[in-house]
Write a protein that binds this DNA or RNA. Structure first.
Length: 266
DNA sequence: AATCATCCCTGAACGC
DNA sequence: TGCGTTCAGGGATGAT
């Protein structure tokens, strides 16, 4: 499940293969899912950026937006190696930029540059937690009045790019129960600082491969060996030794330490 | 306005 | 062995 660190790792991997290339041919079978891709024919890739979990290929007046969903994998190489090839783009280098996506939760579309009206989550995206516009006050104003903090970490409006794995990791580092609501200022401060810490760790370790994730070169990430709670049910908390518990919060599998992350009634 | 439930989709894990 | 069931969840959407 690619989140901010995984998408950033892919972005860095693909940059040297895509920068300056022209899209010579684009193939896919599902025009309802992969929209307006023909608009990109003949366009050159001026840069590859990222916003939250979205990859953005700068094509000048337009941009190609890629979201990997749960099982999407992009790369430059031989698409014949993949069973679930959904989109392939022939480059003027002769190489193929492709999306392989078994479960088809991923998206690829071409839009006028900056027009995200067909992507409500991207339109309302919160600040980049690893960027210069990440501010405590607006973060705190939301945290203090919501009922279940984890659902807002996943929501993308509070902060961009956090998914299920890094939400649990940040909450453990901040010692906050995933179902906690109405955070105090010190709690919000701890969470505000924990989010970029766990995301940087993910970037440094080239992403978390729990099952499906591969980087832009098809390699496994390394961050799974450094997770504090995610997928560690029954293992001892590294802070206090209490066994990590798995529950369900916001319709998501949720791991936490019942001692370090106690729920406060408010 | 916030919160919750449902849908999309496939493969792996599980139970009998 | 094999078949059917359950689970995983990001984001869009509709309901409460």
């Amino acid at each position: 499940m690619p989140e901010l660190p995984e998408v950033e790792t892919i972005r860095r991997d693909l940059e040297p293969f895509l920068n300056g290339r022209t899209l010579v041919r684009i193939d896919h079978q599902d025009p309802r899912r992969y929209r307006d891709l023909a608009r990109a024919l003949g366009a050159s890739i001026l840069g590859i950026g990222r916003r939250g979990k979205y990859l953005m290929l700068d094509l000048g007046a337009i941009e190609m937006i890629v979201h990997l969903g749960m099982t999407g994998q992009v790369g430059v190489g031989d698409p014949a190696l993949f069973r679930h090839l959904r989109v392939s783009c022939l480059l003027d280098s002769g190489e193929v930029f492709f999306l392989n996506d078994p479960r088809r939760f991923g998206k690829v579309l071409v839009v006028d540059k900056g027009d995200y009206s067909s992507l409500p989550t991207l339109s309302a995206m919160g600040p980049e937690p690893l960027g210069p516009d990440y501010r405590f006050e607006p973060f705190y104003q939301i945290c203090r009045q919501v009922r279940t903090i984890k659902s807002h970490l996943l929501d993308q409006r509070l902060v961009a790019g956090v998914g299920n794995i890094y939400a649990d990791e940040a909450l453990h580092l901040a010692r906050i129960h995933p179902s906690q609501g109405y955070l105090t200022k010190p709690e919000a401060q701890r969470l505000f600082e924990a989010v970029p810490k766990v995301l940087w760790s993910g970037v440094v370790n080239r992403g978390t491969t729990f099952k499906d994730y591969r980087d832009g070169m098809g390699r496994y990430g390394g961050n799974q060996d450094f997770l504090r709670v995610y997928d560690r049910e029954g293992e001892p908390c590294q802070e206090c030794g209490t066994l990590i518990v798995k529950t369900r919060v916001a319709q998501r599998g949720t791991y936490y330490c019942p001692r370090c992350q106690s729920l406060k009634k408010r």
